[in-house]
Design a protein around this nucleic acid. Structure first.
Lengths: 141, 141
DNA sequence: TTAATAAAAGATTTTTTTGTCTTTTATTAT
DNA sequence: ATAATAAAAGACAAAAAAATCTTTTATTAA
């Protein structure tokens, strides 16, 4: 479903939502250690998210990454599409160039339901709200 | 979700279910052309399926691939797991080593609910029955 | 204003996946 | 028996994804 980079991206964003803020930024080193993820690879991913204004960062001492108020209102759908491209949620599960409700591949109905449910959640839940649930239910990231 | 090899495998098996039989085998060349898929790569995939008794084959003139009665009773779940490994349907969508209903990752509920739907179909529908529907509804493979 | 810090950027390497080509083995029709 | 056929197997190449290392740039605290 998601590339490795995308999985790291989602987890990093959720980590920032829960553990960081403008007054308490988190560095690559901290995030990579907390998530047990390759540091330099994560750095690249964070840069990409930052360039696309999905996360915020400042350089220098006491610098690092965090989510601004605006960032917290974004959704994971945007994060996912930033890393894995815009077709993640609507490409055919069998890779057929034409596959739609009108012209469905043999797995279309099932695959569509599966992915659309996930898509819906990622699209309609703000990252900030998701973070609250994670804290409330003490979920691992 | 599925690797490229797995997508080819599913499509090839369905092609065989619809277009081939013990009396009318299909060669790699025919299948690759019909599905517009790289020939030599497909050959490798068919070999793997054959070694695992998910498809049948015979060498030599008028040889090729087909599905035996037993093969038609198998499911796409078996095909998928033969190519992509046994964890496709129960590994965490975020790649966390521990993620279950008791100890869910932040996306577990959504991912599980919807993936399980796909899993259920692939697990409980025989390839032969699926092929009948494909013919009935004239679906592209 | 300087040294230390940490992200940004660029270049490179490693690993995995995908795709190709060649040789061998089995089968069958002549 | 033999030639033709087609899968099986093995070796190889290309592309993509994942991971690493180095240099540059911006910031800030002393």
């Amino acid at each position: 479903m998601f590339s490795q980079a995308c999985k790291y991206a989602i987890r990093a964003v959720l980590y920032l939502a829960v553990h960081a803020s403008e007054g308490k930024k988190a560095g690559v080193k901290e995030i990579a250690a907390a998530l047990d993820v390759p540091k330099y690879f994560l750095a690249k991913i964070l840069q990409q998210l930052s360039r696309n204004n999905l996360i915020s960062s400042t350089k220098g001492p006491s610098g690092g990454f965090y989510l601004s108020g605006q960032n917290l209102e974004a959704t994971l759908k945007e994060v996912v599409e930033c890393i894995d491209g815009p077709d993640v949620f609507n490409s055919c599960i069998l890779g057929l160039p034409v596959c739609s409700s009108e012209n469905p591949c043999p797995l279309h109905v099932q695959a569509f339901a599966y992915r659309e449910g996930l898509h819906y959640q990622l699209k309609h839940q703000a990252i900030g709200d998701l973070a609250k649930r994670i804290e409330r239910e003490e979920q691992k990231i």
